[in-house]
Nucleic acid binder design. Structure first.
Ligand SMILES: [Mn+2]
Ligand SMILES: [Mn+2]
Ligand SMILES: [Mn+2]
Ligand SMILES: [Mn+2]
Lengths: 218, 218
DNA sequence: AATAAAATTTAGATTAATCTAAAAATATAA
DNA sequence: TTATATTTTTAGATTAATCTAAATTTTATT
């Protein structure tokens, strides 16, 4: 039906559209997929021919309903497989992304639904990202990050905006895993470096790190 | 490392070598993969460059140790995923082959080993085919088929040589599943059609069907 | 509004995998 | 041992996805 490559483009466009952008730019897609803008233009034309995106030269690209459905279904697969890998095969949360990138393209309705059932219809993946249900409905995070908090506020870690091994590994060392409670003790005015409390331990965390940690105030 | 296509060629050559053939022919590979002999020649050259097969023009092709290792590892993945689909996701034995054809190419050592462990180190897949262990050791069936039996002999079904949906479906209707006991009541001399007993029921089965059913005499 | 900078598209190549048609080598049969 | 048939390889095209370099369009800046 659609090639792996086409599916990856659709997913990238979907994610880049989440910030409310109207007309995702060629360069943004090229960046996200680590490819060249000229390659993106070629692929966009192909996706437009297949009615998966709407596109006018120089004006950026938008997913059609059809394209969005495909993207959401790939994301559903990805996140379900991540749950499987962590819950059933005991992988750590920093090891599953690349495997899920491959598994997500085995896009067979029956497999996805059976997997969902086997896993007990999970609502979130190991990184706190919401899993679309079988009709494609997805609850988006409100995206409050640790960096948004002010001195004295408390919150619970509910997700991450960055999925690199090094970031996830670092968070785990600091015990900043999903469900952890944090309290902001101090913020450096110059560069927004934070001093926080995690499990009664003082931790210093850069703005680079705190702005990628999604939290829920308590 | 190797593309899906290369892996499928290696697997095909491996399976065609099992009958003790020295030098698998271009046409045999083309048949198995439903492609053209000229395409096979091209791919063989590529695999030879990568030292995965040894090849001399017009003399057929053989896997090297390296090529054989890859093939066995793909087969291991394939069969483990089939067990997963049947045992954990409740698929039927006639539904899993095509899905496993895709899953087998996610060839990551750690994933395979974790899956094996999760499944309890199974020795056979849902079709009775042996699963290579993590060192690549594989116990080959002796390949006695129902059609080899004579009148009066009893046997247990232990595998199938043909994996098509229609064949597996048909077997299931006749209750000729793994573990079933059969007794040969009569054989038509003309075309080797068999009258057999399965669970106290009389069943008539063609030679075409009986020669693809692997059994163990009792 | 004119010019410079940035973003995007086009033109032309490349690589992997495939195909058809034709040529070459091997196997079979008279 | 020739002639015929079969198998295998080569030659030349095609399609998908990518790239570099050049041309075009849009955006930002004087
Ligand atoms: Mn991921
Ligand atoms: Mn995730
Ligand atoms: Mn199979
Ligand atoms: Mn099988």
């Amino acid at each position: 039906m659609n090639s792996f490559t086409e599916e990856n483009y659709l997913k990238a466009i979907y994610k880049l559209s989440l910030n409310g952008v109207q007309g995702v730019s060629t360069n943004a897609i090229a960046d996200k997929l680590a490819t060249k803008p000229s390659s993106v233009t070629d692929m966009i034309k192909k996706l437009a021919d297949k009615k998966l995106v709407s596109y006018q030269k120089y004006q950026g690209v938008n997913l059609t309903k059809k394209g969005s459905d495909v993207a959401v279904s790939i994301i559903r697969n990805h996140r379900l497989w991540e749950v499987f890998l962590v819950e059933k095969l005991n992988f750590k949360w920093d090891e599953v992304h690349d495997l899920a990138e491959e598994l997500e393209h085995i896009n067979t309705h029956k497999l996805t639904e059976r997997l969902d059932e086997f896993l007990g219809f999970p609502k979130f993946d190991p990184h706190g990202d919401p899993i679309p249900d079988k009709d494609g409905n997805i609850i988006q995070h409100k995206d409050v990050t640790l960096s948004d908090l002010i001195r004295g506020e408390k919150a619970v870690v509910v997700g991450v905006k960055e999925h690199s091994k090094s970031y996830l590994n670092y968070l785990e060392q600091l015990q900043l895993v999903l469900g952890a409670e944090v309290e902001v003790k101090d913020i450096v005015e110059f560069d927004a470096t934070m001093q926080i409390l995690v499990n009664n331990k003082q931790v210093i965390i850069s703005n680079q790190a705190s702005k990628n940690l999604i939290v829920k105030k308590i």
